[in-house]
Design a protein around this nucleic acid. Structure first.
Lengths: 232, 232, 232, 232
DNA sequence: AATGAATGAGTCTTCATTCAT
DNA sequence: TATGAATGAAGACTCATTCAT
């Protein structure tokens, strides 16, 4: 009954949800599954999370925080890395994250969709989402994330590793878009029959080449490609 | 009883589904809704579409075809446009499509997810999807779409409007990724509070600038920006 | 449109039903299945058979007739066989029939159930059954069947091959009961674990022994067992 | 919430099913009927019974157990009865059971059919049946039942009331077959028109005569017929 | 005579959520 | 605080039968 135990339980539920939603998918998993997996009664689960959406948002929040942590770590120690190096670490990390923690990345994208509806017409968003305490927190985390990415690019511009004519904010969102799109498209690329000359690996290389070209400008066309070489 | 009437009904059902799924979302809409909206009996709906998934794939196919049509039209009359101009029309069209016909675009992305599962482990894809006649058709349409995009870039490389060092296939997928990502991210950009200096418009401009930079190379840094100017 | 063609079609439908109901079961098979299999439209099927029950009763009738035919054939040429020999052929035939044409035998038992309800409370029998022209015909065929069996026993009593103190009618029904029960029970006998000393073969032998003992009396306890030996 | 209440509800549902399935038949009755009759929500019915098949197997189990109980009671106190007397009580009981509790007897026969399929090809049996916890229990109960019947005959052989040359196992199954067949055939006997000299009563007598003849041997042809006299 | 599109009541089943204990 | 039994609306889908053409 102590605060600690309560937090432990909350965490346990969340972790079960992460596993379950990750393996079977959100719609296929049920609250009963979560209860069974945690050995915690359904009633108590509803004490900690007000609805299934609330639980899902909690999961989203955790994913967002892990991503933020990953962004943070990409900076390394102060002055250790150039902005471009930070960005390199960051893409690498992001793409791994999207692949290995697909539940989180999917949840994040779902949240972006919610944000879209929210902005267009607040009423279209389910009350269960709006009422969740995680919704506001998520709004903040999402913002923090963007700020970190923008900061990395700004640093690169400052230290000369990234071309100076870039608008950091737009550039960050563009690069983020690219990465999101990459995760969406990558599965279908390998299915292309022979008449399209591409395969998973060549496409990834091509993608990264263009990604970094945006950061560096194409007149520095990868003479030495340490960045690309390091990736993955 | 004529073939014509049959096609009319089939179309009517599909159109109701497009509206319904578009407004309320796939999961929230029911086959009963579709029946009610069309004033067609549930049984008959199942006569035309073997399952809800089948209907959704039909919708996806229609979306894919509209997109293909849009791609095709972007080429204009033979020799009328440069590859770069074609690409300009194409992004413009794609982004409008994604915004105005969001159901279709969402369905397309869902299909890409299916393709991902399909490639990793065929069994993970629901039989209802695999058994739908639209599945194979969709495979083809998706392929056609990619070929068209690649063709446009190849043409640009040929006619000198697009930089020659581009690998057309990778470039197309990268640019497509960007556009997909753009549609996912764009809704949340406008929600950013003041401390991030960006708004919907500036971000779109930034995005397009980088998009075309990839095609043209950054050493032609938008002196005259006719392309960008035309957009939207 | 000739009478002949009509009969052909009727037969074709019936045969499809026999196959279908036999393979998948009555409840699992649909009228649409029948239509598909025969390449005859549903509407026309309903022209020949007024309802699914009607079709099933037609099937039942055909089974009953085949059984009657089998009974008839068991008699052989006039004076060729003793009553006991006839009965021997008859059991043999009946058990093969029940095994190899299980649809027919099941249908026959279903009909006996209907008769049961009919006798207890006429209203409990579905109108679809009562209205079928096959119902009355079935009543007659069923009666014919019984008469044939009784006749065989009577002949045996006359010719001395069957014990004289038997009441032919009761004996026939009893022996028929035995055979019906045999077909119901036989599948589960082989599943008995080792602590019940029986297997499919020993039980069949035991069954037949007692079956014929009823006909011959136990004081002729199978010294020579030609009858038993011949079976199957 | 107590265990007792739970069992009460479970029982209530089962009893409603027994009535419903008995009156209208399994296929005609619906789970909604059961819910309505018990005033228990559909969801809760599915909480107690995982599927309609599960509920039907539960019913079958109850029937099997009642029959087992009946078999057990037939033995009376130790050494009180001869094997033959036990068998007498047993047939009497069985036939009453089959008549008065027809749902149970029908369910039992359905189970025998399942066993048949199970033995021929396990896959042909619906997963809903195989997954029911009652399936295994039923396998055991069915076995117990057979053992009891065999035991009664063995006892009779020991105490001299039943002829010694009988193979108890085969004899039991044969006699069981007879009884099953009797229940199937009996309804149609009374419908026979006058030209077949039989009626319900005479046929029952004839049946029982032969039944006991199998047990006693025909050279003891019912001089004193206390056994027969007692029946019904 | 022949078709097969059309009906719609009915089937089993699921699951987020609540609440008496 | 904790349970898990209870709810009931909703879901996808089926199929015997009819009838306009």
């Amino acid at each position: 009954m102590g605060v600690y135990e309560r937090q432990q339980r909350e965490k346990k539920i969340l972790e079960a949800a992460i596993q379950l939603f990750g393996e079977k998918g959100l719609h296929v998993s049920t609250m009963a599954d979560v209860a069974r997996k945690t050995r915690i009664s359904k009633g108590l689960i509803y004490f900690y999370y007000k609805s299934k959406e609330d639980l899902y948002l909690a999961l989203t929040k955790k994913g967002m925080d892990e991503l933020k942590e990953l962004f943070n770590k990409s900076f390394g120690k102060p002055k250790e890395k150039t902005g471009l190096e930070i960005m390199t670490t960051l893409v690498e990390g992001y793409l791994s994250f999207a692949r290995e923690k697909a539940v989180f990345h999917d949840a994040l994208l779902d949240f972006l969709s919610v944000l879209d509806s929210y902005q267009v017409q607040r009423e279209k968003v389910s009350p269960l989402i709006l009422e969740s305490p995680y919704f506001t927190k998520l709004l903040q985390s999402h913002h923090d994330l963007a700020k970190l990415g923008i900061k990395a690019i700004s640093m690169g511009i400052q230290d000369g590793s990234i071309r100076p004519d870039l608008h950091a904010e737009s550039a960050f969102y563009t690069l983020w878009s690219m990465m999101i799109g990459y995760t969406k498209v990558t599965g279908s690329v390998s299915l292309e029959p022979g008449d399209i000359k591409i395969n998973a690996e060549s496409w990834k290389n091509g993608f990264l080449k263009l990604f970094f070209e945006i950061l560096k400008g194409s007149n520095t066309p990868f003479k030495s490609q340490p960045v690309q070489g390091k990736l993955f």
